Simulated scan of single mutants.
Amino acid sequence: MIRETPVMTSDILDELTGATLFFKCEHLQDTGSFKLRGASHAVSQLPADCPGVATHSSGNHGAALARAASLRGFAADIVVPEGAVASKVDNIRRHGGTIHYCEPTQAGREAALAALVETGLTPVPPYDDDHIIAGQGTVGLELLEQVPNLDVIVAPVGGGGLVSGIALAALTCEHHRPQVIAVEPAGADDVMRSLAAGRRVDDHRPDTIADGLRALVGERNLALIRQHVEAVLPVSEAQIISAMGNIWQHLKQVAEPSGAVALAGVLAHAERFRNQRVGIVISGGNLDVAERLAGL
Rank of each mutant, 00 (worst) to 15 (best):
E219W: 00
E219G: 03
E219R: 14
R220C: 04
R220E: 05
R220F: 06
R220P: 05
N221I: 00
N221G: 07
N221H: 09
N221F: 10
N221K: 00
L222N: 03
L222K: 04
A223K: 15
L224R: 15
L224V: 11
L224P: 07
I225M: 05
I225T: 07
I225D: 05
R226C: 09
Q227I: 00
Q227R: 11
Q227L: 10
Q227K: 07
H228S: 13
V229K: 04
V229Q: 01
V229Y: 01
V229E: 12
E230C: 13
E230D: 15
E230S: 15
V232H: 02
V232Q: 06
V232S: 05
V232C: 07
L233Q: 05
L233V: 04
P234G: 09
V235D: 01
V235C: 07
V235W: 05
E237L: 08
E237S: 06
E237W: 03
A238I: 11
A238C: 02
Q239H: 06
Q239A: 15
I240Q: 04
I240S: 01
I240E: 02
I240H: 00
I240T: 01
I241H: 13
I241G: 06
I241W: 11
S242C: 11
S242M: 12
S242P: 00
S242T: 14
A243T: 06
M244K: 14
G245W: 10
G245E: 09
N246P: 00
W248H: 13
H250R: 12
H250W: 14
H250Q: 07
H250T: 07
H250I: 10
L251N: 09
L251V: 10
Q253T: 03
V254D: 01
V254L: 14
A255Q: 13
E256K: 10
E256Q: 01
E256V: 01
E256M: 07
P257L: 00
P257V: 10
G259F: 06
G259L: 02
G259D: 05
G259N: 10
G259K: 06
G259S: 02
G259E: 08
G259W: 04
V261S: 09
V261T: 09
V261W: 03
A262P: 05
L263W: 08
L263K: 02
L263C: 01
L263A: 01
L263V: 08
A264G: 11
G265H: 06
G265S: 03
G265I: 00
G265D: 10
V266A: 12
L267H: 07
L267W: 00
L267C: 03
L267D: 03
A268M: 08
A268V: 03
A268Y: 06
H269A: 05
H269V: 03
H269G: 02
H269Y: 06
A270Q: 11
E271H: 07
E271T: 13
R272M: 15
R272Q: 14
F273D: 04
F273V: 04
R274N: 02
R274G: 02
N275M: 09
N275S: 14
Q276F: 09
Q276H: 04
Q276R: 15
Q276W: 10
R277Y: 09
R277M: 02
R277L: 08
V278E: 04
V278H: 02
G279A: 00
G279F: 05
G279D: 06
I280Q: 13
V281I: 13
V281C: 08
I282M: 13
I282L: 14
I282T: 04
I282V: 15
G284Y: 09
G285N: 12
G285I: 07
L287Y: 08
L287H: 08
D288E: 11
D288I: 12
D288T: 09
D288L: 07
